[in-house]
Amino acid sequence: MLIYAVKRLSVAILVAMTVSLITFSMIYLSGDPAMALAGESASQSDIENIRRVYGYDQPIMVQYFSWLGNALTGNLGHSHYLKTEVSEVIFTRLPVTMTLGACALTFALTLSIPLGVVAAMRPNTLIDRIALTIAVIGQALPSFWFALMMIILFGVTLRWLPITGSDSWMNFIMPSVALGYYITPAVMRLTRAGMLEVLSSDYIRTARAKGLRPSVVLFKHALRNAIIPVVSLAAVQFGFMLGGSIVIETIFAINGLGQLAWESILRADLPMMQAIVLVLSCFYIVLTFLADLLNAFLDPRIRVS
């Protein structure tokens, strides 16, 4: 188990390094950063000045390592636009996005896993069709459109829920549903397929031959095995959700990382964008690592060699 954890951890660190390199290189994707900062009417000497002040005149590897060294110590640079430390802004916005992500993931899993299980228990019946319909709709609806429709119905017409801000838990309902529904279909389908396969397996027949209660057969013997691939998928889907949160936070005017990313793109605030991408990537990497550990816990074939 320990060896496995160390292996997964070193992979995670390698991925994090790669991500940081790509994140850093982003600066140069949009052309000369000094020129972009200086603006259209800047003189050549202004540009040179800016280049020197921000260190863009250094060789790129030197820039990368000094940026990386700073990032590791928590110094993510200085915002070009907000005139404050990037890390300061990010740490005030991060909890909001994490709350949204956690709520959305919880919503998605509590909807998709039971639906998948029920659909697998009664394949090709009405209940299976209903579950499939819910999944297909989720796959077909763009999340921004779904969010806008919810705003019209629950926010404007029925006036049940607030449509902007992040002040109370009520504010998180619609964004969580919009964001979570986006990953529901994939998780539901995998749960259904996994359960169908497991339910027809020999060890489920053994469990029934032992006279175990149907609930024990289903939840202990079947779900434990069917859920293993779902854990990995959920971690990957959470990554998509972090991307999706940019759209959802913008729509619901939630002051999270997503909205900050959107604003920073508009402001060409490169250090801020770099930092946001880095932080979100690290979250994704940590989550994948945790999913690996959870899988090892669930599946002794990974854990015990």
């Binding site: 397996s201 020999d202 060890y203 053994t206 031959a209 434990r224 095995n225 599946d299």
Partner: peptide
């Protein structure tokens, strides 16, 4: 009680 044909798959892999 019943003993099955396939010992390789008749026990649940996730439990001791």
């Amino acid at each position: 009680g019943m003993i099955f044909q396939e010992p390789m798959t008749s026990l649940n892999p996730a439990f001791t």
